[in-house]
Design a protein around this nucleic acid. Structure first.
Length: 813
RNA sequence: GGGGGCGUAGCCCAACCGGCAGAGGCAGCGGACUUAAAAUCCGUACAGUGUGGGUUCGAAUCCCACCGCCCCUACCA
């Protein structure tokens, strides 16, 4: 075919559509169940069905697909499923704003996205698709909930939530707007309210979740999770509160207890009401109310001045026996430790600030080095020698921590303790579009779980999800009113739904058998595929989804459902693709790139390759529309090379061609192993350029072989182009079921290299030497160089540094 | 306040275990093709690696300090 004809014949969009059809007909992406091959479960985080795939989806999914394709060509049976995280707020908001039912909105989005996913040219096995808002799926959320409940891992308690007093409803975090913390719908200031909520006891697994020895995850994610779990060692000490009883505090510094000159409770602490002196009541109550209005985020603002009020009550320091005043202050959080602290102003920055403001004694009990009894100008938080601490004076503070703890323990006033920052997972959402919590409240029997055989508790389709101010299911009498499964009497259903992170905590298991109805997944399929070998997704999920799914798997293990400890063995975090202006893409910034316009113009392969080429995958980066051209040229050139074929034989070095081929195979293979798609594509471009250059100058047979290998290497990146090219050179359908090429190490090495000759670190000459030249020979050859000889004249060579294949350096004096 | 990442050509990015700063691409420039342009093809210039020190025969790479940008996290007792 002539070049002109090729140019005319290159219609990537049409070509891609043709192959997509063919692939579907031939079913080449149906999951290979041949257990003779090693398994590879590749997983990319499932998308939320927002309506259209955006560039971010492409950036996350297509490299993941490339890697899965590569593994397949490497001889693995690969399972690479996809699904939709279909419950959640946007669907409900669309319903409220536009009157479309969430189900309809979600399903039509999914339908749309399915088509776009196919267009992407991925090898997703759509037979394994999971849609989490499907009762077939969420039934198992409920089933798990019951199992968790049986094991005591699901429990109900009062927990603070954001509450809009005007709409009379709880709000999700993203519905609370701005630093003023206003309700998104009516601009009313949001308050904290204690409501009955369901929680999962993830804290039971805190210690095990700190063990990362069984997974190969990015250091960064491990650190994030470790910090999030926040294990601290210390002691729980008991302070007697006058007229109330003992109150426990947690401290990491029991050594400083002799310096505890006051005591602080969180405004929410249950004891506050009972201990407040009558003359203080008004002040205390107003402070508590003010604190309640503040969000946790505002309260966590450490730069804010430390506020608080005296309750009029006193506690007894268990070490000194002194009476110390009890304050309430919002810098003490109910959610951490016991919600009360012993305040040691001399050795804690926050307590120091508070004590100064309230004129409380600041007593040094750990002497800083060189301290001579002068008042501290700031809190000293380091180690030192004990002072003002009775019998412990003179002891190093580290040792005093243990000794004081056991001393108090002997007197029944304390014990060593470990506290975690991690809190239990609050799963209740006062929302319609989620999984109903399978619980029934009966006046007589109390809290009754829905019997397993009654699952799923269906989400009623005709619910009133308009903004009426109450949890939508609460208004649905038909849903809410039930017979108690235990006594048959009148009862009410729980009307909250589950957090959508529940859905994504175990979806990787459901993929294995999405229609299996005897359990969350078919154990036989589980044996064949679990656990996930390679997971890819954004690092923003480090302390949410990625922690929850680890927790979930450990519970599943304890339920006997799986026999391993970790859900995903290997994780890779891709970066974020930014808008052309270098900012995060967002509609309000107007910098959103629509993949469709590029797909329509260049085809999917170009977009895929461009996104992989733009830079290291974990780095992300700004979108550059101009850069796409280069990749488009590359693929078109590659295509035309295959279609036109060999030109003529005119004497280029066929061995060099072969060496380059093997070098390319090695480079691309190693880069794919390490998720370095950008340099792999650069290597393919280089090879393509070379193939083009020698197309009419080398032995035809060997050129064709080199081209064949090139196409195979290209296949995971540009599946459509490679398929077309494969067909053009007479390859058997499909290129994607071929074996990945292997390289011959002996052919990778170049034959002759340019050895750099330096004198005292400065480059003086380059000489051609055989690759395997010995040091002595290299030295000899280098000395023969005129330029080098000139430099060495009159000097003696003190040292020769020889790096094979690189340089030879004469150190001369 | 704490933790992490990144600064290399006009731009996106390469550079293994320290060894000639350049693989690939964009844009630029020159040529071929064209009546002309686009497209295409061929060919090319461009930085001494954010700044300042240090280690070394030799530093983009290792160490120290600083500057800039980004991300995460934050009163955790």
């Amino acid at each position: 075919m002539s070049e002109a004809k090729v140019r005319q014949s290159y219609r990537p969009v049409e070509m891609e559509r043709r192959w997509q059809r063919r692939w579907a007909e031939a079913g080449i992406y149906e999951t290979d169940q041949d257990t003779a091959k090693p398994k590879h479960y590749a997983l990319t985080m499932l998308p939320y069905p927002s309506g259209d795939l955006h560039v971010g989806h492409w950036y996350a999914m297509t490299p993941s697909d490339t890697r899965a394709r590569y593994m397949r060509m490497r001889g693995h049976r690969v399972f690479f499923p996809i699904g939709f995280d279909a419950f959640g707020l946007p669907a409900e908001n669309a319903a409220i704003k536009r009157g479309i039912h969430p189900y309809k909105w979600t399903m039509s989005n999914i339908e749309n996205m399915r088509g776009q996913l196919r267009q992407m040219g991925t090898m997703f096995d759509f037979d394994a698709e999971v849609v989490t808002c499907d009762p077939e799926y969420y039934k198992w959320n409920q089933w798990f909930f019951l199992k968790f409940y049986e094991k005591g891992l699901a429990y109900r308690k009062q927990a603070p939530v954001d509450w809009c007093p005007s709409c009379n409803t709880t709000l999700a975090r993203e519905q609370v707007v701005g630093p003023e913390r206003l309700c998104e719908r009516c601009d009313t200031p949001v308050v904290k309210k204690n409501l009955w909520q369901w929680l999962f006891k993830i804290t039971d697994y805190a210690e095990e979740l700190l063990d990362f020895s069984k997974i190969d995850w990015p250091e960064r994610v491990e650190t994030l999770q470790r910090n999030w779990i926040g294990r601290s060692e210390g002691a729980e000490l008991v302070f007697e509160v006058e007229g109330y009883g003992p109150v426990e505090v947690f401290t990491t510094r029991p050594d400083t207890v002799f310096g505890a000159t006051f005591f602080v409770m969180s405004p929410e602490h249950p004891a506050v009401e009972k201990i407040t002196a009558p003359e203080r009541e008004a002040e205390v109550r107003s402070y508590v109310e003010r604190a309640a209005r503040m969000s946790e985020i505002d309260r966590a603002d450490a730069t804010r001045e430390k506020t608080g009020v005296f309750t009029g009550a006193h506690a007894v320091n268990p070490a000194t026996g002194e009476r110390i005043p009890i304050y309430i202050a919002d810098y003490v959080l109910m959610g951490y430790g016991t919600g009360a602290i012993m305040a040691v102003p001399a050795h804690d920055e926050r307590d120091f600030e508070f004590a100064r403001k309230h004129g409380i004694e600041i007593r040094t009990v750990v002497a800083p080095p060189g301290w001579e009894g002068e008042p501290l100008q700031e809190a000293y938080v380091g180690e030192g020698t004990m002072v003002n601490s009775g019998r412990f004076d003179g002891m190093p503070s580290g040792r005093a921590r243990e000794e004081i703890t056991s001393w108090l323990q002997e007197r029944g006033r304390g014990r060593p303790a470990v506290t975690y920052r991690l809190r239990d997972w609050l799963i209740s959402r006062q929302r319609y579009w989620g999984t109903p919590i399978p619980i029934i409240y009966c006046e007589k029997c109390g809290t009754v779980p829905v019997p397993e055989e009654d699952l799923p508790v269906l989400l009623p389709e005709d619910a009133e999800f308009m903004p009426t101010g109450v949890s939508p299911l609460k208004l649905n009498e038909e849903f809410r009113n039930v017979e108690c499964p235990r006594c048959g009497g009148p009862a009410e259903r729980e009307t909250d739904t589950m957090d959508t992170f529940v859905d994504s905590s175990w979806y990787q298991y459901r993929y294995l058998s999405p229609h299996y109805d005897e359990g969350p997944f078919d154990p036989e399929a589980g044996d064949r595929w679990l656990p996930v070998d390679q997971y890819t997704g954004g690092v923003e999920h480090a302390t949410m989804h990625l922690l929850y799914t680890r927790f979930w798997t450990k519970v599943m293990r304890d339920l006997g459902l799986v026999d391993f400890d970790e859900p995903m063995l290997r994780l890779f975090n891709q970066g974020v693709i930014l808008g052309p202006d270098g900012n995060r893409m967002s509609k309000s910034r107007g910098n959103v790139v629509t993949p469709q316009e590029y797909v329509d113009r260049y085809g999917s392969d170009v977009l895929r390759c461009y996104l992989m080429f733009i830079g290291p995958w974990d780095q992300g980066g700004p979108w550059d529309g101009k850069g796409v051209e280069g990749v488009a040229r590359f693929l078109r050139r590659a295509y035309s090379m295959a279609v036109e074929g060999f030109a003529s034989d005119a004497g280029a070095d066929p061995d060099e061609l072969e060496r380059r081929t093997h070098r390319t195979i090695k480079k691309v293979t190693q880069d794919l192993e390490n998720f370095r798609f950008n340099t792999a594509i650069a290597a393919l471009m280089e090879q393509s350029n070379y193939l083009m250059a020698v197309r009419n100058r080398v032995d035809e047979e060997r050129w064709s072989e080199a081209l064949r290998q090139f196409i195979l290497l290209l296949a995971p990146f540009a599946p459509h182009h490679a398929e077309e090219m494969w067909a053009a050179i007479g390859g058997k359908f499909s290129v994607h079921t071929q074996n990945w090429p292997e390289w011959d190490e002996s052919l990778v090495a170049v034959e002759e290299i340019e050895l750099v000759v330096q004198v005292n670190g400065k480059v003086r000459d380059q000489i051609k030497v055989p690759t395997d030249v010995s040091e002595a020979a290299a030295k000899e050859l280098a000395m023969q160089s005129e330029k080098v000889a000139r430099q060495l004249e009159g000097r003696s060579v003190r040292k020769v540094i020889y790096v094979p294949g690189r340089i030879i350096n004469f150190v001369a004096g």
